[in-house]
């Protein structure tokens, strides 16, 4: 699937919960395939978010144009960027950039993960987490996050000290997304963005570099990362069929 398609197939998840509560209340798999925003209960607004994010990923519109569309929708809902609240104000520039950048980066990461084959992992067996986008106040705790995530998974497939390099199949990526070490600003995903508003992303690392870092022995076959599936689980289908109130198996 293209990154644009990945966004378009996402479900809308209206909620009155805040970001930390959302992470605690919903399973990661559900959030991964949903468009949501803290304390945003409007389905039509979330549908607009989904649409403009998809159009951004197709290169049709810029971030400023996407923000303009959403700003107009929020204005009609009674929100203004002049309202107080900073990031908790849905119409603030920072909040709009946050939702657009998070959703588009997540979709791009999933699209890249879905394209991993034996050939690509053979040539580039690892990712390096590095700063790809500038931020006015970048987090300075990435070494602590990396160390905590590494310790949590026993440094399985991950480099210690210095560069943030790990095999694509290393469990460190999930630990980083889960906020190992007690970081509460993470998104729960094993791919970038690992934290809200983060400008850190992945660069592919070649085989030679992986051997130099001791992540692979010469001739050792690199493991492939688990794919990301946005398909809903069977439980959801079962719930829906049951809610229909008839025995659909006869028709099948």
């Amino acid at each position: 699937m293209t990154a644009e398609d990945i966004i378009r197939v996402k479900e809308l998840l209206p909620t009155t919960l805040g970001s930390v509560e959302i992470r605690d209340a919903f399973p990661r798999e559900l959030l991964e395939r949903a468009i949501f925003s803290a304390r945003m209960a409007s389905v039509s607004y979330l549908a607009d978010v989904r649409d403009v994010c998809a159009r951004m990923m197709s290169g049709e519109i810029s971030e400023a144009a996407a923000r303009d569309v959403l700003g107009g929708v929020l204005e009609r809902m009674g929100h203004s960027p002049q309202d107080e609240g900073g990031l908790s104000n849905p119409a603030s520039i920072r909040r709009l950039n946050l939702i657009l950048e998070t959703q588009t980066q997540m979709a791009a990461s999933v699209a890249v993960l879905q394209e991993q084959t034996a050939a690509t992992v053979g040539i580039w067996p690892a990712w390096e987490l590095t700063r790809l986008e500038g931020r006015s106040a970048p987090r300075e705790d990435w070494p602590q996050r990396w160390n905590a995530a590494g310790e949590a998974v026993g440094w399985d497939g991950a480099a210690r000290g210095g560069r943030f390099v790990a095999l694509k199949a290393s469990p460190i990526w999930q630990a980083l997304g889960d906020g190992a070490g007690g970081f509460k600003d993470t998104l729960g995903n094993p791919y970038p963005p690992f934290a809200f508003s983060s400008g850190m992303g992945w660069e592919d690392v070649g085989r030679e570099e992986c051997e130099r870092l001791g992540l692979l022995a010469p001739g050792e076959e690199p493991p492939r990362p688990a794919g990301v599936s946005l398909a809903p689980d069977a439980e959801e289908l079962r719930r829906v069929v049951e809610s229909c109130g008839f025995d659909i198996s006869e028709g099948l």
Partner: peptide, 15 residues
């Protein structure tokens, strides 16, 4: 606006 670096971070391929 960083539109180039943001775009670069979102490049994907499909085969």
């Amino acid at each position: 606006t960083g539109h180039l670096e943001k775009g670069a971070a979102r490049i994907t391929s499909r085969t």
